[in-house]
Structures are given as C-alpha cells and as structure tokens.
Design a protein around this nucleic acid. Sequence first.
DNA 1: TTTTTATCGATATATTTTTATCTATTATAC
DNA 2: GTATAATAGATAAAAATATATCGATAAAAA
Lengths: 222, 222
Amino acid sequence: MDTEAVEKVVRMPSVKRLPGYLCILRRFQMQGRELVSTTHLAEEIGLAPIVVRKDLEITGITGKPKVGYPVPELIEGIENFLGWNNATDAFLAGVGCLGSALMGYQGIRNNGLNIVAGFDNDPAKIGSTVHGRSILPLKKLPDLVRRMHVRIGILTVPADAAEEVAQMMISAGIKGIWNFTTVDLKTGPDIVVQKEDLSSGLAALSVKLKRAKEKKEEETES
Amino acid sequence: MDTEAVEKVVRMPSVKRLPGYLCILRRFQMQGRELVSTTHLAEEIGLAPIVVRKDLEITGITGKPKVGYPVPELIEGIENFLGWNNATDAFLAGVGCLGSALMGYQGIRNNGLNIVAGFDNDPAKIGSTVHGRSILPLKKLPDLVRRMHVRIGILTVPADAAEEVAQMMISAGIKGIWNFTTVDLKTGPDIVVQKEDLSSGLAALSVKLKRAKEKKEEETES
DNA sequence: TTTTTATCGATATATTTTTATCTATTATAC
DNA sequence: GTATAATAGATAAAAATATATCGATAAAAA
C-alpha cells in the first residue's frame, strides 16, 4: 500500500531499554565524546553488545564500522523515536506521597513529559503548589483537559477511586494513562494504559533473592 | 541428585504478575468469596484465562475442575512463593521526594517488605522521622546492616552517589538492592539488583501513544 | 600498500513466553 | 443414575525475544 512498506516491528523490551542508553549518551555528550560503539554502551549498561545493536536499530540511526555511532545523532534519534524532543503536557490526579514525588521527579521532566498541574479532592491541598505546580480541585480536571488539549494523565489516586478518575480523564479526551494504582483499568481499545507496578518489581526482587539464597545453600552442602 | 528433581522453571513475567492476582484475591477474601476460577481472575485482571492458569502453576496450588481454586489457599500459596508471608527488613538510602514517598507507600508494607529506617547525608533530615521511621546519617548504614542482618537495600539517592552508596551497602552485607536510580550498578554475581525504571515505563507509554495516533490517522485517511 | 583489528549490519539459531488444543475431572441439571 | 457444562492440567504450536555467526567495512598498524 505504502510506497516503502518497511513494516518494522517495534519490540517493547527494546523500547524500554532506550531511556537507559539515552541517559548514558547524554553523559557522554557532556564529556565531549563524539562517537560511541555498541561495545562501550553495552559495558556501561551491563548488557551484551548484540542487544544494544539490535535495540538501536529501531531508531534508524546507523553507525560506522570500527568507529561506532555519532553521539549527538544517536541522542536525537532516540528522542525522536520516543517523541521526547518536544515535551508533552500531562495532568496528575491524586497528590499523595507518590503523586507529589512524581511532580518533583527530575527524571520525568527530562524525558519529554511536563506535568502542568496536579488535581486532588483534599481541600487542604487545593490551592497550594507542589514543586511549583498548582493543585486544583479534581472536578475541574475534565474542563481543563478539553481546553488545554492534554492527552496524558498520571493516575496516583487511591485504589478505590482509580476507575472513576480514569473514566473522568477518558471522557474528557485523555488518550494515555500512566497508571500507578494497583487497579487494572477497564478501558476501550483506543486508550493506552501503562501500568507502573512497584509490587511486581518487588516480587521479582524477592524471587531472585530467594533463588540466590537456595543456590548458595546448595553450594555449601556439596 | 534430588529424590524428586522437578526442576520447575520460574518465568519472570509470571512472577511479576503474581502481585496483581494477590491484590484481587485479597479483595475477594474480604468479600467472603471462598473459590475463584481462572476465568474470573482473568476477567478482573484483563488477561486471558490460560495466562492466569500458567502463572498460578508456579505456586504449586491446584484447583478443582468446575470449581476453581480455594481463595485462602491461593493467597497463601502466592505469598509463600514470593516469601511475603513474613516481612523482610529493609533499609532505604536517600530520603528525597521518591525516598520519602516509598517510606510511606502502603503497597510496600503490604507486600512483605518493612522499611525499618531511612538514611541520608542531609543534616536537616537526619534525626527527623518520615512516616514514623527515623532518618539516620548515611555513614551509620554499614554498621546497622551488620548488626540487624538487613539483606535488602532500597536505593533512592541521586545518580552521582548511586554507585558509592550501593558499594557501601554491599560491603556491609546487603544481598539485594532495589535500585530506583538511573545508574546501572556494577555488582558481583551474588548480588541481586532489581532496577525500577520510571523512564522505561514512560518510553513504553510514549511509543504506544504514538502508534495509536498513527493508526488512527491511517484509518481517517482511508 | 598490505595486514590487522574493531565494529556494524544482516542473517540464522536458540531460548523464552504466549497462546492454543485436547483430555480428564467434577459439580449441576435432568 | 446419566448427560451436560465448566474448568483444571497436560501437551503442543506459535510468537516474541535473546543470542550467536559471519561477511563487509573502515580505521589503524605494520
């Protein structure tokens, strides 16, 4: 159908590793490095060179044999691929511990996302500012989403409010939800939900620790 | 070698989904439900029943046809598999925005991890308490790790201090590090590191949103 | 200039993870 | 009792992901 139907498959694991490369590359750039090979990148990030090369492939940036990739070009390529070159506005709902932390988290601001305001139901919070951004009443969210054409919502409300607030976001026009609650949101197919689950990371840590311990005990036995 | 070498493979994706089931199952238990089928669990969590069945397999708990799994047994089975039945002590280093949030985050406390103290270098923070836990000077961490036999460290320090503090933890006897920094820690093979990377989640969200948008535009064209 | 070495890029293989199929089991309805 | 439907559990196929191999290329060294 297209003149050039490349139909490149985008593997999620690769996408998720891109910010890691980006972070290292930005440091290299500050150090004045012009070129970087996958070998060096792999060493920095603790992965195999082959993984790095495969990952960078999706950005479309090409390197030169014996030399590597040009650092600035690679940074731009990754930012471009992720759409992080011009920051996207986002609203955050639920200014609790985690919500406040996210509003002040530098890592988000550096990565193409601009939290323009926080929303909450707590009268004590409404009207105040958190890390320079004002906290507004939750009921004002839909109207502001429409007026400012905000497409991304960050959900840090308590579990029992998650579904309701998510629906509020969606019906106002939010297209992507970064979900920090434990709730599995029921949304239509055109809404993108990224669930950020701390407990799954903890589960992975627990199991890996348990296995490491068992392995050590086996070794001691023999 | 063993009398019963079952040699069951533990798939990480399955492990990471277990906390999700656990959360739902606890709610079911509060509602007084005695039994649950994978069909119902799958519906709740938004996955295919077959996935759920495969995942629950690793806990060793068995269900009955036409009936399902006994809820309390399944909860215990998952908690047992993850080692979440008796809480593990942990230290947190770096009481900034994110560190404070984690110290107050209920999800951690409910899931087998007990943050007993926070550590920081900032004199303004030292001596205070955050969510009921005291903040101690970072240099006291190694001694306390040894005396209290703490095995898990949570790393929420700034990027440039990450490697140093991690080494401090490891040489004191910490075996598992929950790493919230952007740094890829260089550790030995017997140290387990779980990197919790918000930016990779954001990358996934960005790409999924971009693809959804492109798809919609294609549909509009035709 | 020729050789050597590092590295990319493409292709191929292996592994892991997901999804599907089939059979056996058990409660419920008839 | 017997038939039926729902569901676990085992096995198999497919898809996704990770890893390895190899030739080509460009810079540096001989």
